[in-house]
């Protein structure tokens, strides 16, 4: 549905995007992660036809939407600016955009959307009197007024207070359940973790990681295990055994729990070794690495934030 092929963008001789490629399939919620200034918004603007690539292609529905006015009917956007006119009311803003998209049952549609974002009681108030969170919600309503198949959201909850952030995230989650394809630009890892099924991490103009969230966790997680013993008398013995193994890099003890970091994948072996040496193990589990850990690892290994 969205294809980015070998995309390069230079501004005044400076390379912002350096041959990036990825694909977002129909119905996916794609999180495009990266620190501020990494080139996320530039990528989105190129896909939307607002900027021209220096080289490479971006396709939505198999075509360049920048040069196809009709194709843009199938796409909804919420950029950094909400795209709202402060001098007009909430209703008038939605009415204007619904006319631009040629929607026939405008009144009904606007009413439903205002209900959806919880702004029905403020429909006649000028947008200039709204809080940032209310504007963002109305911006979301504006972005979906024409029932787009693909939704591009650029930092939708950025700069909002925690309450407004939660409300905007809930709205996006609701939208994701409607089988829309969502392209989400964000540097908020918590947001991406909660919403997205697939992510790409952009840093230094290149894609450093691109996969499903779970696959990335597996790929980037070092094998860390938490082993819970039954008997306290076994703890010292177990630690000695674990330290003697050459594929164990670190062990930390906390009561009956031992956290073991391995140099390589030997999860089944380690458990067998302990049991064979007479250690009673109650539970052994692999510790999941958070997206934040993965992201920070990638950014750190790429030379820090630019």
């Amino acid at each position: 549905m969205i294809e980015v092929q070998n995309l390069t963008k230079e501004f005044n001789g400076k390379t912002v995007l350096d041959g990036i490629s990825f694909e977002v399939k129909e119905g996916e919620i794609f999180g495009y992660l990266g620190p501020n200034g990494a080139g996320k918004t530039t990528t989105m603007k190129i896909i939307l036809g607002l900027l021209k690539p220096t080289s490479g292609n971006t396709l939505v529905f198999g075509e360049d939407i920048g040069s196809n006015d009709k194709l843009r009917r199938r796409v909804g956007i919420l950029l950094e600016n909400d795209g709202l006119y402060e001098g007009l009311s909430a209703y008038e803003n939605l009415d204007y955009y619904s006319q631009l998209y040629g929607i026939s049952d405008r009144e009904e549609k606007i009413k439903n959307l205002l209900d959806f974002v919880g702004l029905s009681d403020r429909k006649d108030d000028k947008v200039g009197t709204f809080s940032k969170g209310m504007k963002r919600k109305l911006g979301l309503a504006r972005a979906i007024i024409h029932d787009p198949e693909v939704l591009f959201l650029d930092e939708p909850s950025s700069g909002l207070d925690p309450e407004a952030q939660r409300m905007v995230r809930e709205l996006i989650l609701q939208l994701s359940k409607e089988k829309r394809t969502i392209f989400l630009n964000s540097h908020d890892l918590d947001e991406v973790q909660k919403i997205c099924s697939k992510i790409a991490i952009l840093h230094g103009g290149t894609i450093k990681a691109y996969d499903k969230v779970e696959n990335l966790r597996n790929k980037f997680s070092k094998p860390i295990f938490e082993i819970t013993l039954i008997d306290t008398a076994d703890v010292r013995n177990a630690l000695d055994i674990l330290h003697s193994l050459d594929y164990v890099s670190d062990c930390e003890e906390d009561g009956l729990r031992i956290t073991v970091t391995l140099k390589e994948e030997k999860s089944s072996t380690i458990l067998n070794v302990l049991v064979n040496k007479g250690i009673s193990v109650e539970e052994a589990k692999r510790l999941a690495k958070s997206l934040e850990d993965i992201y920070l690892d990638i950014v750190k290994h790429s030379g820090g934030e630019r």
């Binding site: 607002l50 006015d69 956007i77 600016n81």
Partner: peptide, 14 residues
């Protein structure tokens, strides 16, 4: 100046 033009440029209008 307010950046609304970007949203407008993404609508079906030329």
């Amino acid at each position: 100046r307010e950046g609304i033009i970007e949203t407008l440029l993404c609508t079906p209008l030329s």
